[in-house]
């Protein structure tokens, strides 16, 4: 079997039961993608397969023979971070960091989907959905963050999507303790 992962060709013979996630983590030394539940219920394992975000725990490596796969390691590296990775750092879009690679891969895939005009459950109209906080939250709900960096994740994605700063939720202005 062979896969192109992060632009590099890998050849390996693995147990037919090996998930794409376990291929990366246990066989190829690519441990950036995380195993949080192994059942498609948390999103920590999200990779981009042929450009689309998927749960790599719920697919077999053997089924992806010949596919183009992007993991967090390929998206950007320390010193050469992808814009989404930098935005997560800037906005503190993580805490423990375990769901983070999945969040970031998911966010990158999600913005592609939005660019294609795909709507979401949060869209009032299915034909001209525009990204906003509610849209981003809905579209990112397949990535659980127990540390609950959600508002910061939304902020990071807003920045990369060019949406600017969000509006404050407070009704009154003023300094605390002023």
């Amino acid at each position: 079997m062979q896969w192109t992962i992060n632009g590099q060709r890998y050849v390996a013979e693995v147990d037919v039961r090996t998930s794409l996630l376990d291929l990366a983590r246990e066989h190829l030394g690519l441990t950036g993608s995380k195993k949080g539940c192994d059942h498609g219920q948390c999103g920590a394992c999200t990779m981009l397969v042929n450009g689309r975000r998927v749960n790599s725990c719920l697919t077999l490596a053997v089924m992806h023979d010949g596919d183009e796969i992007m993991t967090i390691e390929g998206l950007g590296q320390v010193g050469n971070l992808h814009a989404m990775q930098s935005a997560f750092v800037k906005h503190d879009g993580y805490q423990c960091g375990y769901c983070t690679p999945g969040q970031i891969c998911s966010a990158v895939g999600m913005l592609d989907e939005a660019k294609k005009g795909w709507a979401s459950h949060a869209s009032a109209s299915l034909t001209d959905a525009e990204l906003n906080d509610a849209e981003i939250s809905e579209r990112m709900s397949g990535n659980i963050c127990r540390c609950a960096a959600y508002p910061n994740i939304v902020d990071a994605i807003r920045e990369v999507a060019g949406l600017g700063d969000r509006e404050p939720v407070l009704v009154a202005a003023g300094e605390v303790g002023a």
Binding site: G40, G43, T46, R52, R53, V54, N55, L58, T59, S106, G109, M110, E113, A119, S120, H121, S123, L126, R139, M140, S141, G142, N143
Partner: peptide, 14 residues
Amino acid sequence: RALLAGASGQLRNK
């Protein structure tokens, strides 16, 4: 609408 109400973006892609 029903499709978009189900699962997650990642799962719907698969």
